[in-house]
């Protein structure tokens, strides 16, 4: 009974804060609404006895959402929410797509028949997960590790200030694109492909 009430409360919190992410005017608030949604899902996982996964989810998202907030402030106009703001395109299409995917997955959940087999009591799921990670699923675990390493290297390569054809923030264009400009002339290449001026307030 108490478990059910807690579950519904945190479910409502997860969905409500998820919805608020795209309705908040302040970027910092949007990021932390998302963090709240993740925290609510983490607590539901803890209620489902997946204690380790739920706590790790909260731990991970705490750091990630803070970085997200910094990025939002760095890259968006009106970061502090001093003015009301919506930056959307094809809103109605997006709403239809969202509703359709919700209905499809919810119908799957409501009408499909799944086997009922709860975890037996008295078994520590964290221990089982650890044995699985370093036992039968070692290959999956290692693949995830290598994938993360590759993502780290790729992220540094992509975001590095020095691009392949000169400084990245000068506007780099690959040689075969530079028809009029002499090869290697970064300034001319930048003129060939002028960087658009940032103009706040041009939304559809």
């Amino acid at each position: 009974m108490i478990l059910n009430v807690t579950f519904w409360a945190f479910s409502a919190l997860a969905v409500f804060s998820g919805w608020r992410v795209f309705r908040a005017d302040s970027m910092v608030r949007a990021a932390y609404w998302l963090l709240l949604s993740f925290a609510a899902v983490g607590i539901i996982l803890v209620l489902l006895k997946a204690e380790f996964l739920g706590l790790i989810l909260i731990l991970m998202m705490g750091g990630e959402m803070t970085i997200m907030a910094v990025f939002m402030v760095a890259f968006m106009m009106n970061p502090a929410g001093l003015n009301p703001m919506t930056m959307v395109h094809r809103n109605s299409v997006a709403i239809v797509a969202g509703v359709v995917s919700f209905l499809a997955i919810a119908a799957l959940g409501l009408f499909a028949r799944f086997p009922v087999a709860r975890a037996p009591a008295g078994v520590d799921p964290t221990r089982k997960l650890g044995v699985e990670l370093l036992g039968n699923s070692m290959l999956v675990f290692q693949t995830a590790g290598v994938t993360l390493l590759a993502a780290m290297i790729a992220a540094i390569a992509i975001s590095s200030a020095r691009g392949r054809y000169g400084d990245a923030d000068q506007g780099s264009v690959e040689p075969d694109q530079m028809v009029t400009a002499p090869a290697g002339d970064v300034a001319a290449a930048a003129a060939h492909d002028p960087a658009p001026v940032i103009s706040p307030g041009v939304h559809q």
Partner: peptide, 9 residues
């Protein structure tokens, strides 16, 4: 069962 993870989170 995961006190140290709770503290870390």
């Amino acid at each position: 069962a995961n006190g140290i993870v709770l503290f870390g989170a």
